[in-house]
Design a protein around this nucleic acid. Structure first.
Length: 579
RNA sequence: GCGCCCGUAGCUCAGGUGGAUAGAGCAACAGCCUUCUAAGCUGUGGGCCGCAGGUUCGAGUCCUGCCGGGCGCGCCA
């Protein structure tokens, strides 16, 4: 049992005892809030329970605090002292010797220190990135990937049964656009004058009036996105089987092979970024003739009486569940909407047994949340089982100036290029430096710079430095005796105890971050821990002639090294042995 | 017009689900390498937490209204 829980037990027992004695009435056991005070002088832990009991007990809070304090028993002998302060806080001061046991706990659990089971094996699905397979990933996808992946790692570490999923929009107008772009480019490359003319009209005219979207897209993709449409067209042309096809079949080929190639590229980019998925879920699967899930979803909603027809279209009554207006499922041309697909998709997620569903979306889709929540309820689920994490769009900067990513400006930058320029660790860490819903300026020069301005190296350097200490010790032939044989009570410095206290806070930090779905908290914790470590490192030698002290300090920094590595791992960032 | 997000130090941002005297990095200034990695350390200054009310023992945090910025409001995806 950790220290915090021991204190909680002491308080709880004291409350029970006070009740027995008749000093407190306590019709029901109050929740006890125990926190770490900001001010050091206020002890290691403090509770406000006396304050919150003041009203129901009709006694002054300080009086209640006296009663509780008088009933407390420190059976494990972990308390240095307790005191009542301010309006009625009870402050707890832990014995130094009790803190030292944290080091043994960390060493004992190793890479599992901080792992918990608050998730209790609950099946959770995190769906993220889900970019259209019509072009390369950009930096906004990168942020979504970093946030989604870190969240998945965090939840998994907290005991949830997590699955990561990528939803492939391989159905509908977007992929048709890709298909005709490739096909169009192929025609141009084959000497089709009409196609070439449209292309040059597009190049000359900002708005390119009268030119269809596919040409527009092809022009953009060929000139600014690394020419991937042109690459694909050329590759297909070189394949013997392609030329044998009829024009119609060529177009189909462009679509099918185009999607396949784009997905492969997306998967490779993400793999390089350290992100992988358990499932790549195809939208087309929802329309399988043998098992049409979209039809099944609409039928289910219709049976519930939540569907109606108007103007030749089929609608879902989302307003019954708080949406602003009802939404179309089937257009009057007979085609289903994206929304209908999405309902079927999310219905299937629940059918697959997930008890909680988390979608990571770009913030520009936030308006879509109410209708999706409504749909979840229409299907008979608790809307709390479906959560959307909004990730704000990223401003790519260079030397303090925004990089405008317009197709005309010729400055489109892919995620791949950003990773190559700044490195994946710096890239991922930077994404986790902000709350997901706050705007992020991603300055390429800053993220690239290997200086104090760059927090990722600050943290990684702490790990590398400590690794170096162990190399030095080994070179000098200094042993690393087991922790049971080491006199940890030699760790008397205030900064040593401060570090131990911070290490002891890690498991709860992980739990809270997981519950709040806020992986960025890990980033801030890391910066604080690294800061304390650097300061400590600078002031004190770890390896000295005093072997007893050396051993004790080596175990301390071993624990720090472990926690830094674990925490960086939750962010998908490496912990280098040397830099 | 309606809805969502944001507003905290000169800049970029934290602020642990309502707690004690609001923090960090950068920038500015002044220092620290003979010693385990200077990608580091030490110190200094800097605030009407957008504004005005409300809820209570207690508000940067919750509620209402305004101001300012971003985004969204399709039988597109």
């Amino acid at each position: 049992m950790n220290l915090k829980n021991k204190i909680l037990r002491i308080i709880h027992n004291a409350l029970m005892k006070a009740k027995e004695r008749g000093e407190l009435s306590l019709p029901e056991v109050p929740p006890v809030a125990l926190e770490v005070p900001k001010e050091e002088g206020h002890g290691d832990f403090a509770t406000t329970v006396a304050l919150s009991l003041a009203k129901p007990e009709k006694k002054p809070p300080r009086k209640i605090a006296e009663i509780i304090k008088g009933a407390m028993e420190d059976s494990d002998v972990i308390l240095e002292k307790t005191e009542i302060a301010g309006p009625g806080y009870i402050n707890f001061f832990i014995k130094d010797s009790a803190w030292l046991s944290v080091l043994s706990e960390i060493e004992g659990r190793g890479a599992d220190y901080g792992r918990s089971n608050i998730g209790n094996g609950k099946p959770v699905q995190v769906e993220f990135v889900s970019a259209n397979p019509t072009g390369p990933l950009h930096i906004g996808h990168g942020r979504g990937a970093a946030v989604g992946d870190s969240l998945a790692r965090l939840l998994s570490f907290a005991g949830y049964d997590v699955k990561r999923e990528f939803y492939i929009n391989d159905f509908g107008s977007q992929v048709e656009n890709l298909a005709s772009s490739i096909y169009f480019k192929y025609r141009e490359l084959s000497g089709d004058e009409e196609a070439a003319k449209a292309m040059s009209a597009e190049a000359a005219d900002e708005e390119a009036p009268g030119v269809e979207d596919a040409v527009n897209h092809a022009y953009w993709a060929c000139h600014y996105l690394g020419g991937y449409v042109k690459d694909l067209a050329q590759e297909f042309m070189a394949r013997p089987e392609f030329e044998k096809l009829s024009e119609d079949d060529k177009k189909t080929y462009c679509r099918e092979e185009g999607i396949k190639m784009m997905l492969r590229q997306i998967e490779e980019t993400l793999a390089k970024f350290g992100v992988s998925f358990d499932e790549w879920y195809s939208e087309r699967k929802l329309y399988d003739p043998k098992n049409n899930l979209v039809r099944a979803a609409i039928d289910e909603l219709r049976e519930k009486g939540l569907v109606f027809e108007e103007g030749g279209a089929v609608w879902l009554m989302t307003t019954r569940f708080g949406d602003d207006k009802d939404r179309v499922l089937i257009r009057n041309n007979g085609q289903t909407t994206y929304f209908a697909s999405d309902i079927a998709y999310h219905r299937d997620k629940f059918l697959r047994g997930f008890k909680e569903i988390i979608d990571v979306w770009g913030a520009d889709h936030h308006g879509y949340i109410p209708r999706m929540k409504a749909a979840i309820q229409a299907l008979g689920h608790n809307p709390d089982e479906f959560n959307v994490l909004l990730v704000q769009l990223v401003n790519l900067m260079r030397e303090g100036q925004p990089v405008k990513m317009s197709k005309r400006a010729g400055t489109f930058v892919t995620l791949e290029e950003v990773m190559d320029e700044v490195g994946t660790d710096a890239c991922r860490f930077t994404f986790m430096l902000r709350r997901p819903d706050s705007h992020l300026d991603f300055d390429l020069d800053l993220v690239k710079s290997q200086s104090s301005e760059n927090p990722v190296y600050y943290v990684q350097y702490a790990h590398a430095r400590l690794s170096s200490v162990f190399r030095q010790a080994a070179e000098k032939g200094i042993a690393f005796p087991p922790i049971e044989e080491v006199n940890l009570s030699r760790l008397l410095l205030p900064e040593e105890l401060a570090i131990i206290k911070r290490l002891s806070a890690f498991p709860e930090l992980v739990e809270k971050a997981a519950e709040a779905k806020e992986p960025h908290r890990i980033t801030y914790y890391l910066q604080e821990l690294a800061g304390e470590l650097h300061s400590y490192y600078f002031r004190h030698k770890f390896i000295s002639d005093d072997l007893e002290l050396t051993y004790a300090r080596m175990h301390l920094v071993q624990a720090v090294r472990q926690v830094i590595a674990t925490a960086l791992g939750l962010l998908g960032v490496g912990a280098p042995e040397s830099m």
